[in-house]
Lab assay of single mutants.
Amino acid sequence: MTEYKLVVVGAGGVGKSALTIQLIQNHFVDEYDPTIEDSYRKQVVIDGETCLLDILDTAGQEEYSAMRDQYMRTGEGFLCVFAINNTKSFEDIHHYREQIKRVKDSEDVPMVLVGNKCDLPSRTVDTKQAQDLARSYGIPFIETSAKTRQGVDDAFYTLVREIRKHKEKMSKDGKKKKKKSKTKCVIM
């Protein structure tokens, strides 16, 4: 069974824990209790493949930012979460993405942009803004509501699919490099 290491990042209060708990335990946590770091595991079937999701729910508070490099190193894919009623959390996505790329030393890291709290009427981040940002990053965008469960499975499952595509691409690139290195030079 394939294991996928997913990391949920975003500013404090955007609903990272609520999304994760909704996926794992099928219930909505409405009281806000700032996370330092929590880890969850769940076995699911995605596109006919049974897999184990190892999900790291991270601290959004700035005082825990020193811990970010460590979990970013171990993560295979990242859910970059903002709240649709919090423009600052949307603007912060850029910083999370840049930090992930720096730590992973790669421009090509599996990510999904997630606009959470889409059940709320007080939207300050337009869907088109988020779609445009995701398009500019070359990553999928999904709106979710941890409260109603809308888009929750889709967000995590899409990230797994992005990781699969990335692994497939990397193995193809690896095979191309191996083929090239088999060419021999004969000096007579």
Results as ranks from 00 to 15, higher is better:
I100L: 14
F78Y: 08
V103N: 06
P110D: 01
I84G: 15
P110R: 02
E91V: 05
V125Y: 12
T124F: 09
V112D: 00
C80Y: 09
P121G: 13
D105Y: 03
G75A: 15
G77Q: 01
N86C: 04
F78H: 02
T87R: 10
L113P: 01
G75I: 13
V114Q: 01
S106H: 06
K117V: 15
K104N: 10
M111D: 00
M72E: 08
G77I: 12
E63V: 03
S65M: 07
D69F: 01
D108R: 05
N116F: 00
Y64P: 12
C118W: 07
G77W: 01
R97M: 15
D105H: 07
C80V: 14
V103P: 02
N116V: 15
V125T: 10
N86I: 02
Y64T: 13
M72K: 04
R102I: 05
L79H: 01
E98W: 01
R102G: 06
A83R: 04
L120F: 11
H94L: 14
I84Y: 15
D69N: 06
F82D: 01
R73E: 13
F82Y: 12
E76G: 04
M111H: 01
D69L: 02
P110H: 02
S122I: 07
D105G: 14
Y71M: 14
A83D: 15
D69T: 04
I100C: 04
S122F: 06
G115C: 11
K117G: 14
Y64R: 09
F82A: 12
M67T: 12
S65E: 12
A66R: 05
K101T: 05
A83T: 06
Y71R: 04
E76I: 13
N116M: 15
P121L: 10
S106L: 11
Y96C: 11
E107N: 07
R68T: 14
D126L: 06
A66K: 05
Y96G: 02
E107Y: 10
Y96S: 02
S122R: 06
G75M: 09
M67P: 12
C118M: 10
I84T: 14
K101G: 06
E76N: 07
K104L: 13
C118G: 10
Q70R: 05
H94Q: 12
Y71K: 04
E63F: 03
F82C: 12
R97D: 03
G115Q: 05
Y96L: 15
F78S: 01
V112G: 00
R68V: 11
E76D: 15
P121Q: 11
K88C: 09
T74H: 13
I100A: 02
F90W: 12
F78D: 00
L113V: 07
L120I: 05
F90R: 04
R97T: 13
S65L: 04
L79W: 01
D108K: 04
D105T: 04
R102S: 06
V114P: 00
I84H: 15
Y71S: 14
A83N: 15
S65D: 13
P110I: 02
G77L: 09
F78I: 08
G77R: 00
L113W: 11
S89L: 03
K101H: 09
S122E: 12
G115E: 04
Q70I: 05
G75N: 04
L113H: 01
F78R: 00
M111R: 00
K88G: 09
A66E: 11
D92A: 12
K104E: 03
R68L: 08
S106A: 09
